[in-house]
Design a protein around this nucleic acid. Sequence first.
DNA 1: ATCCGCGTGACACGGATTTGACACCTTCTT
DNA 2: AAGAAGGTGTCAAATCCGTGTCACGCGGAT
Lengths: 234, 234
Amino acid sequence: MAKILVVEDDRVLRETVEYNLRAAGFGVVTAATGDEGLKACAAERPDLILLDVLLPEIDGFRLCDEVRKTNQDVPIIMVTALGSEEDKLRGFSLGADDYLTKPFSMKELLARIRANLKRAKVEAIRESAVIEIGDLRVDPSRFAVTVADRPVRLTVKEFQLLVLLASHPEDVFDRRVLSDKVWGYDFVGSSRTIDSHVWKLRTKIESESSYRYIHTVVGLGYQFRPEAKHEHSE
Amino acid sequence: MAKILVVEDDRVLRETVEYNLRAAGFGVVTAATGDEGLKACAAERPDLILLDVLLPEIDGFRLCDEVRKTNQDVPIIMVTALGSEEDKLRGFSLGADDYLTKPFSMKELLARIRANLKRAKVEAIRESAVIEIGDLRVDPSRFAVTVADRPVRLTVKEFQLLVLLASHPEDVFDRRVLSDKVWGYDFVGSSRTIDSHVWKLRTKIESESSYRYIHTVVGLGYQFRPEAKHEHSE
DNA sequence: ATCCGCGTGACACGGATTTGACACCTTCTT
DNA sequence: AAGAAGGTGTCAAATCCGTGTCACGCGGAT
């Protein structure tokens, strides 16, 4: 299930939100200050950030800005006291994805969180541009993949896996992240499912290629990194 | 880059939107009232209009209506306070192309704008160019379709589907996009509806043709790609 | 009233997805 | 260094799901 970072200085509200999110099955990491929030974001790599505007040290806007510098994709929901229209605008222009006004109900909070998580999943795939790496070419809008100019037929899951990996070269994706992004946050299946798809994807794109693209990082997950195939003369 | 007219009375929101649109590379013209908006529309001939529903003098609905009298084609995105479903329907009936609910993120706004501009391009093609691919010929302005020089009778929905698909060969359209474009944004129906129409369209244009045009992309949607029937070269 | 286009549901088929079994490999332990 | 333990590659079999297909009912148009 998705991991959510809650950045909120008010202890009571923070714990209430945490309790409710956990009850709804989410993983929760909390931070009381902007500084902590920024660190937690880097360390925990949450799937979504719930961010209070009014924070000690670094305020929500700056935090939002900082986070966006290193992570373009994570959905951010800003929380503010009621009716501050200017804050709202400022937040949006800095890259928040959604906005929530205090007081809010847990029902609404959960609805917004789910909506934003869902959006993050599909958007990543459909919006991305053509990817060209090595002799591999991926055209998301046409659902087309070629290896050394030869078309390769992929299934939807294989395609989504490939786009996710290839659009973040060098990044290591663990199985949870892969299943969250490709299968959705509510997916519960054996890890063999992912391995199996990765294997099929490999056979399809690497057999005809002079590169190896998908690398296994044992104990962690998979990584996209083009590497010329060559006779191992070690 | 496209020119966008922003009609919005709230100064902060107007300037924020303007700033962000410019940052994204769009040309921007703004208007604070419905009157100004109408004049700006005539004078500047924007490629897209972002229109707040609540405006002094002339409200968004009337403005939308007025604009449509002189300019059938320009995409209009209506903006309203959250959750007013009635407004939404009213907006659509007056010719708005899309609807955005406050508060919205800049990310979402940009996505919608791009989507609508792209769609407008499809429309433009539809208005002007005759599509000739394989033994298929589509004359959008005359509502005429021939296969191997034989006229084919299509219904309106079938025709719209065909024009949409055929004017973007190779592009994969998912069911969501198809229903948005052909049926309208407020359409909520079973996916079988689309399948059913695609099937009928296929039987009509492919039975007499030596090509297969409409391909299924399992798990995603449909794609227009002329392919000679006998040879299976995939 | 009749016709025609549209939307929906039922059914079946085939490909996509998932699972499980086994072999192999990596890392840790002693 | 060697074995243990757990992670991963491999692939076939089983299952699931999406889609093709088409009949039927509704409602607006003629």
